[in-house]
Simulated scan of single mutants.
Amino acid sequence: MSQPTNTTDEPRGLPRRSVEILVALTLIALAGVVLYDSHGRGAGWDGGPQNGFFPARVGWIFLAAAVFVLWQSFRTESGIFVTYGQLGQVARVLGPLVLFVALIGPLGLYVAAAIFIVAFMGVVGGSRWWSILLTAVIVPIACFWIFELQFRVPLPKGPLEAALGY
């Protein structure tokens, strides 16, 4: 595949440097939260390690690594990290996943899984309607049988399972 020679032909997207800076600043903020919480619990050594001793050490290492990522982001050449087309593909996968997680609480895992399968296979996979429906019915029932009945592992249930007596 040849590289575009004209600047108007280059793919548009998020610049690498901006993404790396954003990630590094997010990691620095998370390290700050870890350090704040660790020192609030006691990060010293008083006849032995206090509650926040080990998390504080990990927080300092985490902070150092995040600062290094930030420093490196200014030293490297900036190109395109991800094109807008690629970002759209990520959104097509992320959308049904966010819907799935949001529906677990009110509908239970099994009904949410059926909806996720329908959304994912329909939006991302473009599968035939009969295979989507068959999969959306069989997979949650098989998971219910395996986890609830065989292994006796209770998973989040919703109104449908309550109506069926589970």
Rank of each mutant, 00 (worst) to 15 (best):
Q3M: 15
P4E: 14
P4I: 13
T5L: 15
T5C: 09
T8W: 09
D9V: 03
V19N: 01
L25V: 14
L27D: 10
L27Q: 06
A29P: 08
L30S: 15
G32A: 08
S38F: 02
S38W: 03
H39E: 06
G40N: 13
W45H: 11
W45S: 03
G47Y: 12
G48Y: 05
P49N: 04
N51M: 12
N51C: 01
G52Y: 10
G52N: 07
F53N: 08
F54E: 10
F54P: 00
P55M: 07
A56K: 06
V58C: 03
W60F: 14
I61V: 15
I61Q: 08
F62Y: 14
L63I: 07
A64F: 14
A65C: 15
A66S: 15
V67C: 06
F68L: 13
V69F: 13
W71R: 02
S73E: 03
R75L: 10
T76F: 12
S78C: 11
S78D: 13
S78E: 09
I80Y: 04
T83Y: 10
T83F: 05
G85I: 01
G85L: 09
L87E: 00
G88N: 02
G88S: 06
G88Q: 04
G88K: 10
Q89M: 04
R92Q: 06
V93P: 00
V93F: 05
L99W: 10
G105Y: 15
P106I: 05
G108S: 07
G108Y: 05
L109P: 03
V111Y: 08
V111P: 03
A112T: 11
A113R: 00
A114L: 02
I115N: 06
F116T: 03
A119I: 07
F120I: 06
F120S: 01
M121H: 06
G122M: 11
V123L: 15
V124N: 01
V124R: 02
G125P: 02
S127P: 05
W130L: 12
W130A: 08
I132S: 06
L133R: 13
L133A: 13
L134K: 09
T135Y: 05
T135A: 15
A136D: 02
V137N: 02
I138S: 13
V139T: 12
P140H: 07
P140N: 01
C143Q: 08
I146E: 01
F147H: 07
E148Q: 12
E148V: 01
L149S: 05
V153C: 00
P154V: 11
P156Y: 11
K157S: 09
G158K: 08
P159M: 10
L160I: 14
A162W: 05
G165D: 12
